[in-house]
Amino acid sequence: MAASSLSLTWASTTIPNKQLNVHQLNESLQQAALPASSNNIKCSSTYAESHHHKRRAVLLGAGALTATLFPSTPLLAQEKPMNYEAFVDPIDGYSYYYPSDWREFDCLGHDSAFKDRYLQLQNLRVRFIPTQKKDIHDLGPMDEVITDLVTKIYAAPNQFVNIPNMEERSEDGKNYYTFEFTLTSRNFAASHFATIAIANGRYYTLIVGANDRRWRKVRNKLKVVADSFKVLDI
């Protein structure tokens, strides 16, 4: 694993309005990348479409049936951390761990989402969009990719951005960028981890976060989620 301790802090309005050479961003990517705090993302605890249930991934808690159907899934081959459950989507090609006391909910435009039973701002979401890229290295240098993504896509106007950590890892021939960032406005601040990867002709994004007042308490817990994200061959 290669890691960077680079820390960046600024107001999003001070970033030059340059063309993003790493993503060739369009409207669909902007919608795919925005954190749950954005007004463009609508999440609820009810399911809107019946077919959404049918394509839900197989949870590790399904027991022997899961192990029989998907014996080669890397996530299932590992020992599950205490107080986490595994979410595996063999149809859309990704997997991750989530806190066992969280519950699934429907988040518009996302393929899967879980949240704390009592603190809804503590949640994770996964979504993906088509891409012609083959690997995240095709997007450009890690610091440029992450800086542009957070400042241009995640941050709303007049929010201050801090990116204290960026990391790269490689597993099973797949490359991932995981990074921590905080978005601060006049009356609110939230911190997140995000992991991005490219596989199967898709650009995958997992974001997990919490209110900044609780971040120090839950940071390590949520880092497990971000580090567990994997893309699977489909």
Rank of each mutant, 00 (worst) to 15 (best):
E85I: 00
T205Y: 06
K42I: 13
N220L: 06
A156N: 13
V58F: 06
K223G: 01
A62V: 15
G63Q: 08
K217Y: 10
G173M: 11
T205A: 05
E104H: 09
H53N: 15
Y177W: 09
F105S: 10
Y97N: 06
I91M: 07
A190T: 01
D172Y: 12
V22A: 03
L76W: 03
E167R: 12
D148S: 14
P157T: 03
T46H: 14
R125V: 14
G140Q: 04
D135Y: 04
H110D: 11
D135I: 02
V58E: 01
D143Q: 13
R214T: 02
K152V: 13
N211T: 03
R186N: 06
H137P: 00
A226L: 02
A210D: 13
S112K: 03
T151N: 15
D138F: 05
E79W: 00
N40I: 04
L34H: 08
G61I: 05
T46Q: 15
V225M: 15
I136E: 02
D89M: 02
Q31R: 13
S5M: 06
V231L: 08
A32T: 12
V150D: 03
C43F: 07
D106M: 04
S191T: 11
Y118K: 14
V161L: 04
A199I: 01
G209C: 08
L69M: 14
D233V: 10
P35F: 06
S28Y: 10
Y94C: 04
P74M: 11
A77F: 01
M166Q: 13
A189Q: 14
K223M: 05
S7K: 08
I129P: 00
S185F: 03
G93S: 08
N211A: 06
V150Q: 02
W102T: 05
F188I: 07
V218A: 01
S100Q: 10
A64Y: 12
I163V: 13
F193E: 00
Y176D: 01
T147A: 07
I129L: 09
T14I: 10
L29I: 11
D135S: 15
Y96W: 05
R216F: 07
V22I: 01
S45Q: 15
H53K: 12
D227T: 07
R117A: 15
Y94I: 09
Q31A: 09
A64D: 13
K115Q: 12
E27G: 14
K152Q: 15
N83R: 12
L20D: 15
D116M: 11
L183A: 07
L76C: 05
A67I: 03
T46C: 07
